[in-house]
Amino acid sequence: PAPAYFSQETLQHRLQILIEGAKESWAYAIFWQSSVDVCSGATLLGWGDGYYKGSEDDKRKRKANTAASAAEQEHRKRVLRELNSLISGGAGFSMDDAVEEEVTDSEWFFLVSMTQSFLNGTGIPGQVFFSGAPSWIAGGDRLAVAHCDRALQAQTFGIQTMVCVPVANGVVELGSTDTIFHSAEIMSKVKVVFSFNSFEN
C-alpha cells in the first residue's frame, strides 16, 4: 500500500532533483504538506520541507552589497544568528563568516516561508491544493496582482516566477528570480518525482 506521507529523507532528495536537474534556473523548491485538524476539520498546508539553490541574482547582490538596507541587513543577520543558535543548541556549529554576508531577498523569502501556512484553501498554494489545478505566474507584475499575500511578498523579495503544482498530500512550489514561461517538462517532472512509488523504497 502507498504510504500516507513522503518520508522526510526522500522529500529533500525529491526537491533537490527537481531543481538541480532543471533547464530553468529555479532558486528554491518547497513542499507544502497538507494536514487536517481532527477537531475542526480544517485543512492546513504547512511547511513540509524546502531546498534552496540560490541564483545568480544572489551573487550579484552580495558582491554589490545591495541586498537590502543596512538596517534590514542587520535585522536579517541577527535573526540568522539566533536561528543558528537555536539549531546548534547555543554551542558548536560555527557559522564562520557566513552570517556576516548579505542575506539576500530570496534567501530571506525562503526563510520566512518556513513560518507560513495556508488554511482551508487560502493563498495560491491552498487554492492549488483544493482545485487540483496548477498555477504558473511569470513576471513580477503578475505576482503583484495575483490577490495572494504570498505572491505579493515573493514579488517584493525579487521573485519573478512562482509555480505551484498539486501532488499527493500537498503542493510543490518552485520560485525563480528569472521570468520563466510555462514548461510542460518541469510540470511533468514534479508529478513523476512526487509520486509515491519514486524513492520511497
Partner: peptide
C-alpha cells in the same frame, strides 16, 4: 523565523549549512 517550530529545524540546519557553502564559493 523566530517561530520556527521543532519540525522545521532539519530544513533550517540544511539551509544554513548550504549557505555556508554558497557564501564561500561566491
Amino acid at each position: 523565523p523566530r517561530a520556527v517550530p521543532q519540525a522545521r529545524k532539519a530544513s533550517l540546519a540544511r539551509f544554513l549549512e548550504k549557505r555556508k557553502e554558497r557564501v564561500s564559493n561566491t
